[in-house]
Simulated scan of single mutants.
Amino acid sequence: MEIIGFIAATLTTAAFLPQVYKTWKTKDVSALSLPMLLMFFVGVFIWLIYGYYKNSPSMIVANAITLCSAFLLIYFKIKYAKTP
């Protein structure tokens, strides 16, 4: 069953990476919602904790990588936000 988790983890984590790359390259954060990113970050952190307690390597790896990606988007949103 863990192989199914790793397949799902790879797909869902990889799907998030192009957004991080695009935001990094363009520095355009206008379409990113900070409240959504913060809620997503907390949710992924909780999934990471859950994966740890379930002893699920696929959940731990996927959520650790996604947590880093979400953190980068939050950082970019704050750093590149246009102030009036």
Results as ranks from 00 to 15, higher is better:
Leu11Ser: 08
Ile49Trp: 02
Met36Cys: 09
Ala81Asp: 13
Tyr52Pro: 09
Val42His: 00
Thr83Asn: 12
Lys22Glu: 12
Ile46Val: 14
Phe16Asn: 15
Ala31Leu: 13
Phe45Met: 13
Thr12Asp: 14
Thr66Pro: 00
Thr13Ile: 08
Cys68Thr: 03
Leu48Cys: 12
Leu38Ser: 10
Leu48Lys: 02
Lys25Ala: 13
Met59Trp: 03
Leu32Thr: 01
Tyr80Arg: 05
Gln19Trp: 02
Ala81Trp: 12
Val29Pro: 00
Trp47Cys: 03
Ser69Met: 13
Ser33Gly: 06
Tyr52Glu: 06
Thr13Lys: 06
Gly51Tyr: 01
Leu38Ile: 08
Lys82Trp: 04
Thr23Phe: 06
Asn55Ser: 14
Thr10Ile: 14
Leu17Ile: 15
Phe41Lys: 00
Ile3Ala: 13
Thr23His: 10
Lys22Thr: 14
Met39Tyr: 14
Thr66Arg: 06
Ser58Leu: 07
Leu38Tyr: 09
Asp28Tyr: 05
Ala31Phe: 10
Ala62Cys: 02
Met36Asp: 04
Val20Ile: 11
Phe71Trp: 02
Ala15Phe: 10
Lys22Leu: 14
Tyr75Thr: 07
Leu34His: 04
Met1Tyr: 13
Ile78Arg: 15
Ala62Tyr: 00
Ser30His: 08
Lys27His: 09
Thr12Arg: 11
Val42Gly: 00
Phe40Pro: 05
Thr26Pro: 00
Pro57Ile: 10
Leu11Arg: 02
Ala14Glu: 09
Tyr21Asp: 00
Ala9Asn: 08
Ile4His: 08
Lys22Ser: 12
Ile74Met: 07
Ala15Glu: 06
Thr26Gly: 02
Gln19Pro: 06
Met36Pro: 01
Val29Glu: 03
Leu11Ile: 15
Ala70Glu: 00
Ser56His: 07
Ser58Arg: 04
Tyr80Lys: 06
Leu32Ser: 00
Ala9Lys: 11
Tyr53Leu: 14
Trp47Lys: 02
Trp24Cys: 08
Lys79Ser: 08
Ile49Phe: 05
Trp24Pro: 02
Ile4Thr: 11
Pro57Tyr: 15
Thr66Val: 08
Gly43Pro: 07
Ile7Leu: 15
Ala8Lys: 07
Pro84Cys: 10
Ile7His: 12
Trp47Ser: 01
Ala8Met: 10
Lys54Ser: 11
Ala14Gly: 15
Leu48Thr: 05
Tyr52Ile: 15
Leu34Pro: 04
Ala9Phe: 08
Pro18His: 04
Lys82Pro: 07
Lys79Arg: 15
Leu48Asp: 00
Lys27Asn: 06
Tyr80Phe: 14
Leu72Val: 05
Met39Asp: 08
Ala8Tyr: 10
Leu48Ser: 01
Val29Asp: 03
Lys25Pro: 09
Val61Ile: 15
Leu72Gly: 01
Lys27Gly: 05
Ile4Asp: 09
Leu67Lys: 00
Ser69His: 03
Lys22Phe: 09
Thr10Phe: 14
Tyr53Glu: 12
Pro18Ala: 04
Val29Arg: 01
Glu2Met: 13
Leu38Phe: 08
